[in-house]
């Protein structure tokens, strides 16, 4: 009887460090996904509205666009182009897995083929997917903390995101730097399927929107082409606001302004 108890105790003794270790590991991996989740939630809120200026920069050429964005969670997003005049009134609507494009000159709403997601969005250096956030950095990737590094004097986690097999994502790998205090994504490296670094996103000009500290300037830099980049400046950014449901309906998007 005593032997049995002893054996049990012995077992417990062995179990404890294993438990601690596994708890430590799970805590560690959970932290990676938690960090991404927190950073992602911070950007989205339950809903958000933003006004942004996009500048496409080429060595001898530049184009500016002004957009309004509305989103609810990750499933509903609407983008309205308000400038330049030629593209004014163009709308991109995303509902779950479907995307529509309203073209004011044709007065018609066109459904996009899924392959549109991987395209450069209106000549910029980011994809349609980057804009409407079809794929999710939370659910479509598995996460790992690689290191802790400083960016612009802010201590950050350096995280590696590998797409899950079943996920339809554009990239082969992402490496994201998230600052430890405010969960801001300050730098993202985009790798292609051959694990080659192709794009870089840098967040800067940290401002407070509502009660959130966020980089107000995002630069998308394709590394293979020198002198090229696309800059996004957030002029207005509001979170957890009430957005009329209509804004995410195909029949309504032509009325947005």
């Amino acid at each position: 009887m005593e032997d049995k108890i002893l054996i049990k105790k012995m077992k417990n003794i062995y179990i404890i460090p294993v438990l601690i270790l596994s708890a430590f590991y799970s805590l560690y991996s959970q932290t990676a996904i938690e960090i991404i989740e927190k950073a992602d939630n911070k950007l989205r809120g339950s809903s958000s509205y933003s006004e942004v200026e996009i500048t496409i920069v080429r060595p001898k050429w530049e184009k500016k666009m002004i957009l309004k964005n509305w989103s609810i969670g990750s499933n509903f997003s609407t983008t309205l182009v308000t400038s330049p005049p030629k593209e004014k009134g163009t709308v991109f609507l995303k509902r779950n897995n479907e995307i529509w494009n309203y073209l004011p000159s044709l007065e018609r709403t066109v459904k996009f083929p899924p392959s549109m997601m991987t395209q450069s969005w209106m000549g910029t250096d980011f994809t349609t997917d980057d804009l409407v956030k079809q794929s999710s950095t939370v659910t479509d990737y598995s996460h790992k903390i690689l290191a802790e590094e400083n960016i612009e004097n802010l201590p950050c986690w350096k995280l590696e995101l590998i797409p899950k097999e079943e996920a339809t994502v554009v990239w082969g790998k992402l490496v994201i730097w998230v600052d430890k205090k405010d969960y801001m994504q300050l730098r993202t490296e985009f790798y292609d399927e051959d694990e080659e670094l192709v794009n870089l996103m840098i967040g800067s000009d940290i401002k407070t929107f509502g009660n959130k500290k966020l980089p107000s300037k995002l630069e998308f830099i394709p590394l293979e082409n020198e002198g090229q980049k696309t800059v996004i400046d957030y002029n207005v950014w509001k979170f957890n606001i009430v957005i009329p449901e209509n804004y995410f309906k195909t029949q309504y998007i032509s009325r947005l302004k």
């Binding site: 000159s105 309906k249 195909t250 029949q251």
Partner: peptide, 21 residues
């Protein structure tokens, strides 16, 4: 002529659901 010609018409649209009319 991307905009195309218009027609003289009366149009009534009723939205029965989020994506239906």
């Amino acid at each position: 002529y991307q905009e195309r010609a218009g027609v003289d018409a009366l149009r009534f649209q009723y939205f029965t659901g989020d994506l239906s009319s």
